[in-house]
Design a protein around this nucleic acid. Structure first.
Length: 478
DNA sequence: TGAAATGTTGGGGCG
DNA sequence: ACGCCCCAACATTTC
């Protein structure tokens, strides 16, 4: 009988279209131990919240069930992978370890040390670059440097895009010593209703989205009250679906929905969103300093006001701006927020409340089930104007007009801010203007039942422009 | 993957 | 008929 391989699951929690897992199985004739390691130091990070953990815990259970259907099961171990991997290699006399390569610098460092440790005992570590559709180091400018602007990156990304065919579910032969039941993590319960974590659900949702919603994606994705987006971000985050499988669907749909002269087709725009994900992963890969500070280092000098009361009001969804409050309450209720809403609230936090983007970034990471450092950091720095290809500091969203554009009938606001449900459409994004008979019709007193705006947008816009002036000031040379 | 401020134009009210 | 003004509508510039 062949020796065993270990497949180390991390962010690729699937058995279909998992190159590293299938390789392990093929190399050892099905003798593969599916392993997940819980590193409690990561679990206790201030960038993690109960909802993402609970979704991960749930996925470990559904992954185990899916493995069981194929005669296998998940092995869950606890500790530092640098110690755990060599220990399990010894326990099960394994001769090969496979895993999906990460893009984050700290994870790459850890993985490098794991590889060194098993190499020292004569075991091969075989890795696969499948976390992104194209590897961060594969898309470079003519000068050989990484792109920091999306458009040229995307042009190059599209040109070199060849999505590998899907890899089938491998065969599994269970190791006789592997416990029947994994030792499940004892993590706090979710505070929200979690999405279905099964691969079956995710694959069906992908099919449904690809066959219907994606054709209207170009405009539908921005409409807050519509299901115009795939809503598969959490599944992509944990690799329940591979990004490659999404790209394949997008490519098929692109052939069926050709672009018109003036508008990019839905599938094309959706594919570009997948490229944005790749883009931000390669930014984190090549510029690890973005994790703690501005990509453009001069923006670290922006004198954020950081008023804790204003920040608390933003977190709680009581700013008095309905579109902002709806979005922040959606985040708390669902552990998810519509992408357009993420842009609106991040613009509001940084440019109306003048709070450091890192406060918002951390809060998002604590609450988002789909929270991913690369994408979340990229999005926040984009909104704050501190990042790669960011919107300029003077581009400031008006929360009222954004609401009118992307939630014209107020359905999104009324879903998450129910105290505004009788407010006439005309005032739904500016309830502070209600008076007389309109106020009576709205059955609400603005200022007590729902807050008055905690800041004045026009005033704060000017304050934000002033705050960002340090960027333009000449450096103080001695 | 803005919005506000400022500039320009032209229709129409009015003396 | 004419000049003047107002201002909506659109364009351009600025942040």
């Amino acid at each position: 009988m062949s020796a065993y391989a270990i497949h180390w699951f991390r962010r690729d929690l699937r058995i279909f279209d998992n190159q590293a897992l299938s390789y392990a199985s093929q190399q050892r004739g099905g003798h593969v131990i599916p392993l997940f390691i819980v590193d409690e130091t990561l679990v206790r990070s201030s960038r993690v919240g109960p909802n993402r953990l609970a979704f991960l815990a749930q996925r470990l259970r559904t992954l185990h069930a899916e493995l069981q259907q194929h005669g296998s099961g998940l092995l869950i171990a606890y500790g530092d992978p640098r110690d755990i991997i060599p220990a399990i290699v010894r326990t099960y006399q394994a001769t090969l370890v496979t895993w999906e390569r990460d893009t984050a610098p700290w994870a790459r460092q850890r993985d490098k040390e794991v590889a060194q440790r098993i190499q020292a005992i004569g075991i091969e570590g075989k890795t696969f670059a499948t976390l992104t559709i194209q590897h961060p180091s594969s898309i470079k400018s003519g000068a050989g440097t990484p792109y920091t602007v999306f458009t040229p990156y995307y042009r190059n990304w599209l040109r070199s895009l060849t999505v590998p065919a899907a890899v089938d579910v491998p065969t599994f032969i269970r190791h006789p010593d592997q416990p029947d039941t994994p030792q499940w993590p004892a993590w706090p319960a979710a505070t929200v209703t979690l999405p279905d974590s099964s691969a079956q659900y995710a694959q069906q949702r992908l099919k449904d989205f690809a066959s219907t919603a994606v054709s209207n994606y170009t405009t539908g994705r921005d409409m807050l009250a519509q299901t115009g987006t795939s809503r598969l971000s959490a599944h992509l985050r944990f690799g329940i679906l591979s990004p490659q499988s999404m790209a394949r669907f997008a490519q098929i749909q692109m052939e069926q929905h050709p672009a018109t002269a003036d508008t990019r087709s839905g599938p094309e725009v959706w594919l570009s969103e997948l490229a944005w994900r790749d883009f931000y992963h390669q930014i984190l890969y090549h510029f690890p300093h973005v994790r703690s500070g501005a990509f453009r280092r001069d923006y670290d000098a922006v004198p954020w006001h950081n008023d804790t009361a204003l920040f608390a009001a933003w977190c709680d969804g009581r700013t008095g701006y309905p579109i902002v409050d709806a979005a922040m309450r959606q985040l708390r209720q669902e552990g998810w927020m519509h992408n357009r809403a993420r842009m609106i609230v991040s613009s509001f936090l940084t440019k109306d409340l003048l709070v450091d983007w890192r406060w918002g970034e951390r809060y998002f990471m604590q609450h988002l089930i789909d929270g991913d450092t690369a994408a979340n950091n990229g999005g926040w720095q984009w909104a704050a104007g501190t990042g790669t290809d960011a919107q300029p500091y003077f581009r400031i969203f008006n929360p009222t007009s954004q609401g009118q554009k992307f939630d014209p009938d107020g359905r999104y606001v009324k879903t998450y801010v129910p105290e505004l449900r009788y407010v006439p459409t005309k005032y739904i994004h500016s309830p502070w203007l209600l008076k007389g008979s309109d106020m009576r019709q709205a059955r609400i007193v603005v200022g007590s039942d729902y807050p008055l705006p905690i800041v004045d947008h026009a005033t704060q816009r000017q304050a934000a422009l002033a705050m960002y002036q340090v960027i333009k000031a000449p450096s103080a040379d001695a």
